[in-house]
């Protein structure tokens, strides 16, 4: 579906001068620096995949999405979607994709939702029957009914997002781009939107590329993630594998039935001890959870225990901050 090969986007930035005449100097200056927003990345996305696209701010995520949606022309490399070059034949290309940019709406501010949708029906040439059918489906799944006749400007953020999702899918696009679809929403609203995305991907076979800062979106939706930073593609694989590789130490919390003077055990370190409760840390490579529990239960009488997996959020933050993926 999507083929990206050695894709590059370089921007020339004019050198900025400061001070009163700075802007004038900037205007006439020929000095510039090249910023490699996207630097030689390659990946493929197959039909029907649901891929998460991650990276810290300014990593090159939105530049990639802009190239994929035809808003930006690459400065090098190859990029084809469905065999088409997105920017070459813009109108024909965008007719087959859908896009939701979380912060902006594609709907008309003063129009009731339903009229915006009808306008989009005409813009995308959606046949009447198909439009009714899709609208009926999305109406139920996204619970649009209560606000179909409300002007977009009076919608809550969550309602607007649902309306925008519906708008992006009315013309049955093969490929859906979602940029921060759950930003600023509460837990219930987020969950509803995730369910909907999953449904669209599974039942309609729509390929979805999702960029987000909310890792629980990715955890719950994507089998595969791409991580980009400083314009380079650093990782392409499952989130679990990433966790296994970089997920910090796991923790085992044990409530001991009797007071013991020495609670140490081979393969794990004691990081906290409070009354009868002891917290051990261990890594996947050194010892499995069941083995550790076995060792402990041989030596101590255990009342209760719990294994804490490291937080994926923390893992990814660590990957960004410590640049673990770069070699």
């Amino acid at each position: 579906m999507i083929t990206v090969q050695n894709l590059q986007k370089h921007f020339k930035l004019n050198k900025q001068y400061r001070g009163a005449w700075g802007s004038v100097r900037t205007l006439f200056s020929r000095e510039y620096e090249v910023v490699k927003a996207v630097d030689d990345i390659s990946f493929e996305v197959a039909r029907g995949e649901l891929v998460g696209y991650l990276g810290p701010n300014g990593a090159g995520k939105s530049t990639t999405i802009k190239m994929l949606t035809g808003l930006l022309v690459p400065s090098g490399g190859e990029l084809a979607v469905n065999g088409r070059l997105p920017w070459r034949d813009r109108q024909a290309y965008v007719a087959r994709i859908g896009a939701v940019f979380g912060q902006r709406t594609t709907l008309w501010w003063d129009l009731p939702v339903i009229e915006s949708l009808e306008l989009l029906q005409h813009i995308y040439h959606v046949p009447n029957g198909r439009f009714r059918q899709n609208l009926a489906d999305f109406e139920t799944m996204l619970e649009l009914k209560p606000f179909l006749n409300t002007p977009v400007r009076s919608l809550s953020l969550g309602q607007r997002m649902r309306a925008d999702l519906c708008a992006a899918l009315l013309h049955d696009p093969d490929l859906l781009f979602l940029d921060e679809p759950t930003i600023g929403l509460d837990v219930v609203a987020k969950e509803r939107i995730r369910q909907f995305i999953r449904h669209v991907n599974r039942e309609r076979g729509t390929t979805v590329l999702l960029t987000t800062h909310d890792l629980s979106d990715v955890q719950k939706l994507c089998d595969r993630v791409l991580i980009i930073d400083r314009g380079k593609l650093l990782y392409d694989g499952s989130l679990d594998a990433l966790q296994t590789r970089f997920g910090g130490r796991r923790e085992l919390v044990v409530d001991l039935a009797e007071p013991y003077s020495d609670v140490s055990v081979a393969g794990a370190t004691v990081v906290a001890r409070e009354n009868g409760r002891v917290t051990y840390q261990f890594t996947r490579e050194e010892i499995g959870a069941s083995e550790l529990i076995g060792r402990l239960s041989q030596r101590f009488r255990i009342q209760d225990l719990a294994v804490r997996e490291p937080d994926i959020e923390a893992t990814v933050r660590r990957i960004y901050e410590e640049r673990l993926l770069e070699n």
Binding site: K66, L71, Q91, A92, V94, F101, Q103, R104, T106, I123
Partner: peptide
Amino acid sequence: RRGSFDQLLLRPLN
């Protein structure tokens, strides 16, 4: 500035 022009680019229209 608002990026609204991008929204126009995303529609299959002149």
